[in-house]
Computed example of a mutant assay.
Amino acid sequence: MLQLNIQNETATLKAVILGTAKSIGAIPKPEDCYDPKSLQHVLNGTYPKEQDMISEMDAVAAIFKKYNIKVFRPEILENYNQIFTRDIAFVIDDKLIKANILPDREKEYLAIQHVLDQINPKNIIQLPADCHVEGGDVMPWNEYVFMGTYSGDDYADFITARTNVQAVKELQKLFPHKIVKAFELRKSNTNAKENALHLDCCFQPIGKDKAILHKNGFLVESEYEWLLNYFGKDNVFEITKEEMYNMNSNIFSISEQVIVSEQNFTRLNTWLRENGFIVEEVPYTEIAKQEGLLRCSTMPLIRE
Rank of each mutant, 00 (worst) to 15 (best):
C201F: 03
S55C: 11
F90P: 06
I97S: 01
D153W: 10
G135N: 08
T163I: 08
N264T: 09
M247W: 00
L268V: 06
V236K: 11
N79C: 11
T240K: 12
F183P: 09
A288G: 05
I69A: 14
D157M: 15
P176F: 09
Q263N: 14
D94G: 11
F218H: 13
C201N: 05
L116Y: 02
E78F: 15
D200W: 03
I159K: 11
E56R: 02
I97N: 02
L102G: 10
L77K: 06
K169S: 15
K70C: 10
D93E: 13
D58L: 13
K210V: 10
D32T: 12
T149L: 11
I251A: 06
N100C: 15
F203V: 01
A288N: 13
V220C: 13
A11H: 01
M53T: 07
I69C: 09
E243W: 03
K193F: 10
S151K: 13
C202S: 02
N235I: 10
M244Q: 10
Q7F: 13
P30T: 01
D130K: 09
T270H: 13
V258P: 05
A15I: 01
K37Y: 13
G152C: 09
D154A: 12
W226C: 12
C202W: 00
I206S: 04
L110P: 08
E225R: 14
N189H: 14
Y109M: 06
E194S: 12
L110S: 13
Q3N: 10
E225Q: 15
R273G: 07
R105H: 13
E170K: 06
M53D: 09
L116G: 05
N123E: 15
T20L: 04
G217R: 05
N164M: 15
Q126T: 14
L228I: 11
K289V: 05
K233Y: 15
E50P: 00
A61V: 04
P36C: 11
E225P: 14
R186F: 12
S249Y: 01
L96R: 04
S261D: 07
V180E: 10
H132N: 11
Y67F: 08
L301K: 00
V279T: 07
A62L: 14
R303G: 08
F203H: 03
Q263V: 04
G136Y: 01
I88Q: 04
N142Q: 07
K215P: 13
M299D: 00
A26Q: 15
N68C: 12
N250A: 02
V60N: 00
N79I: 15
I212Y: 01
N248M: 08
F252M: 02
A61L: 11
R105Y: 05
G152P: 09
M147W: 12
M53S: 05
G135D: 12
K215V: 08
A89K: 12
V42Y: 02
A26R: 11
E256K: 00
I179Q: 13
T46V: 02
Q263I: 08
T270K: 12
D157T: 12
C201E: 03
H198Q: 12
I63V: 03
I63E: 07
D117L: 00
L228C: 11
K215W: 11
I83Y: 03
D157Q: 15
